[in-house]
């Protein structure tokens, strides 16, 4: 008997989140400042942008999601096809999550 500990959980989340990013769909490459939510996963899980650039998240699930970066930004609830945009003006690592499904996490790196 063994339950899943936090470390395994964290690893599983990261592993799951990386898969779609690695696949690199053509439309995402054409619009690099878009982050999509499919199957409860932010993709790409990590996105690097320049200061002043705007990132747009789009929810493509049948379930609402949010994008929350504690102390930095917080989207309204995005229903299916809902979007949220944020313009990054300060360099840094912005770790964010869905406040409804907090196992969904992602990061925007601003250079």
């Amino acid at each position: 008997m063994r339950s899943i500990n936090r470390r395994d959980f964290g690893f599983a989340v990261v592993a799951a989140a990386l898969v779609p990013a690695g696949v690199g769909r053509a439309d995402e490459q054409a619009v690099p400042l878009a982050i999509h939510i499919d199957n409860f996963v932010f993709a790409p899980a990590q996105l690097t942008v320049k200061v002043g650039q705007t990132v747009t998240w789009t929810n493509r699930d049948d379930i609402p999601h949010t994008v929350v970066c504690v102390g930095k930004f917080r989207s309204k609830t995005m229903d299916t096809d809902g979007t949220f945009s944020f313009t990054f003006t300060v360099p840094g690592d912005y770790r964010y999550f869905c406040s409804l499904h907090p196992h969904m996490t992602g990061m925007v790196k601003v250079e």
């Binding site: 964290g10 929350v68 770790r95 964010y96 999550f97 406040s99 409804l100 907090p102 196992h103 996490t105």
Partner: peptide, 14 residues
């Protein structure tokens, strides 16, 4: 006892 476990959720948590 009715409990609330859906508020103030932390990133990466449950």
């Amino acid at each position: 006892v009715g409990l609330v476990n859906v508020v103030d959720l932390k990133g990466g948590g449950l």
